[in-house]
Simulated scan of single mutants.
Amino acid sequence: MELLGLHHVSILTGKAEDNYRFYTKVLGMRLVKKSVNQDDTTSYHLFYGDAKGNPGTELTFFDIPMLARTHPGVSSISATSLRVKDTEALQFWKQRFDEKRVEHGEITQRAGRETLAFEDTEGTKVILVADNGETGVEPGEAWETEEIPKQHAIVGLGPVTLTVADLKPTEKVLTGLMGFTHVGSYPSLISETLPDIEIYATGKGGTGAEVHLETRPDLPKERIGRGGVHHVAFRVPDEKEYDVWAERIQQARIPNSGKVDRHYFKALYFREPNGILFELSTDTPGFDVDEPIESLGENLSLPPFLEPDREEIEAKLRPLDLS
């Protein structure tokens, strides 16, 4: 039994409209689900992914208007990656970012791969990573737009970077509890005096299945706000294995949410020792359980247990102009 890789990454936004325009119009991702935060139904929850909303391709955003900015630090998911096909795609994106005035760095090697770091409109740190024929977790299916050719489109999630004050407790959970394997390291791009960034992989490995651990004892603890990453979720193939994982987390005496039915997937949440929120999520049933793939994200989707309250929920939601 092993986790298959990354399932989704959830981030906070204070401006859902700007967020939508950036991730769909600039990055060319597909809005695959427009729903509500099931724990606070007065707030929207937007999901962006590949052409079919496959697990392992989604960035999700909780909309919290007027949210304060994030103060970076440790105990954080400090960077998220998105996969593209090759270095040629990175060159396309570098030119596009120049044209769209998106803050970005240069094409740089990280963990032996060509990468391009940039920031969204709220300061979320994102890294494009080129697969360049690497084997491992399969990419998603590119969503083609008028401005972004299919061969350059984003095809899934790449490695997440966790920044911690002390690596060992997090490493112990990743390898001892969650079954990750240490597969290498690479130098910090910030300073050569900082410890190397350690790489852990699960499942088939590759860009869609890695966690990178950065040790920064010099930093304060993060104060999360807009643009900050709320949690990272890892893929469990089905509900049968999900039940086993739930029991495993419980037996390890790790405080957790217990089983949570999100309708589109089953979830279980817990914090690793440095305080970063992890989620285990099933691949099934998927985002097409309540609307056809052809029309994903076009209407407000509610899980069956919230559907009876649709009228009340819609009345409390602010108008959302996704155009």
Rank of each mutant, 00 (worst) to 15 (best):
A201F: 04
E222P: 02
L174T: 04
E171P: 05
D261K: 00
E291H: 07
D238G: 09
A165F: 07
W245P: 02
V232R: 01
S281T: 05
R223Q: 14
E272N: 12
V236S: 06
I197A: 05
D196M: 09
V211D: 07
E222H: 04
H230G: 05
H212W: 15
V232S: 10
T215R: 15
P169I: 01
L268R: 04
R262G: 01
T215A: 15
V260P: 02
A252P: 00
R253M: 10
K172Q: 15
T175S: 14
R253N: 14
V160I: 14
F265G: 03
G225K: 00
K259A: 10
I190L: 15
G176D: 12
L277G: 11
Y242R: 01
T161W: 08
E239K: 10
P159N: 05
N274H: 10
W245D: 10
K221M: 11
Y269C: 08
D166N: 14
R216C: 03
E210P: 01
A246T: 10
K266H: 09
Y186P: 02
E247D: 11
P217T: 06
A201S: 15
K168I: 01
L162S: 10
G258Q: 02
F270H: 11
A246S: 14
T207H: 10
F234L: 15
W245Q: 04
G286D: 07
I190Y: 15
D283P: 04
H231Y: 12
T207A: 13
F270E: 12
D238F: 06
P217G: 07
G176M: 12
D218P: 05
L177H: 06
L194V: 00
E198N: 13
L174M: 12
T163I: 13
E239V: 10
A267Q: 07
L268Q: 11
K168G: 02
P195M: 13
L194H: 14
E210I: 01
G179M: 06
A267K: 05
G228M: 09
P187V: 10
F270R: 05
F265I: 01
I249Y: 04
K266N: 07
E272T: 09
A209H: 03
P220F: 06
G179S: 11
T284I: 05
R216P: 03
L162G: 09
I276S: 12
P169E: 05
E239I: 08
P169A: 04
E214K: 13
T284G: 01
